[in-house]
Computed example of a mutant assay.
Amino acid sequence: MLHALAEVSIPALARRAAALVGEYIDHRPDGAAQAAAYVDRRLNQGPAARAVLFPLVTGLLRGALAPALVASGSPASRLLRAELPRRTAGGVRACTPASLCTGPACSSSVPPRARPATTGRW
């Protein structure tokens, strides 16, 4: 199914297809290999895929890494935990440990006032 979605070339439909891939991963985390194949196929389509891929890949990275990056961890890990979100998000300024976390796995790690007011979707 994701293979066919990667072939969608009409911009509005391609954005919706990417959103469907994100929703698929939300419901089926074991589908990460299929999502990676989707991203790979879209990357092969060149710069035109950027507008579709950037939000999807950023959201997938944030969702997958958020619990580890917002955990308090040891004192020795805190600097790296703060630095990694900035580096892995390709310079997205809003990407901080507090902004990464919107899912239930993060609810105890980030105080409610520090969590973004979203529906859990990026």
Rank of each mutant, 00 (worst) to 15 (best):
P75C: 09
A49R: 06
T119A: 10
C101L: 02
P104A: 13
A35P: 05
R93K: 15
S72Y: 04
A89Y: 06
A117M: 07
G73C: 07
S109I: 02
A66C: 04
S99K: 01
T118C: 06
A68I: 07
T96A: 08
R87Q: 15
A19Q: 13
A66T: 01
A12V: 11
L5C: 05
I25D: 01
A32Q: 13
L43F: 13
A19G: 14
R113L: 03
L43T: 12
C106Y: 01
L56D: 02
V70Y: 00
G91D: 09
P67T: 03
A64Y: 04
S9R: 09
R62K: 09
L69M: 08
S107V: 07
V70P: 00
L5E: 03
A32V: 15
A33V: 13
S77C: 05
P47S: 13
R93Y: 11
P29H: 12
P47E: 15
P55Q: 07
R93I: 12
L5V: 02
G91H: 06
S72W: 04
G91N: 10
R115E: 01
P55D: 09
R86L: 14
A71E: 11
M1S: 11
L61G: 07
A64K: 05
Y24Q: 05
R93W: 13
A71H: 04
T118S: 09
A51P: 05
L2A: 05
R28S: 15
D40K: 15
E83A: 14
M1A: 14
L61Y: 04
M1G: 11
D26W: 04
R93N: 14
T88H: 13
R50E: 12
R93Q: 15
P75F: 11
A17T: 04
L69Y: 01
P11S: 09
S77Q: 08
P75D: 12
E83N: 09
L100P: 00
R78F: 06
L20G: 10
L60E: 04
A37M: 09
A36C: 12
L60K: 03
L79P: 02
R115N: 01
L43S: 11
F54I: 15
A105C: 04
G63K: 02
V70R: 00
R15C: 09
A33K: 14
S107C: 08
C95E: 07
L100N: 00
E83F: 10
D26G: 06
D30A: 14
A48Y: 02
Q34G: 11
T102W: 00
R86C: 12
A114E: 12
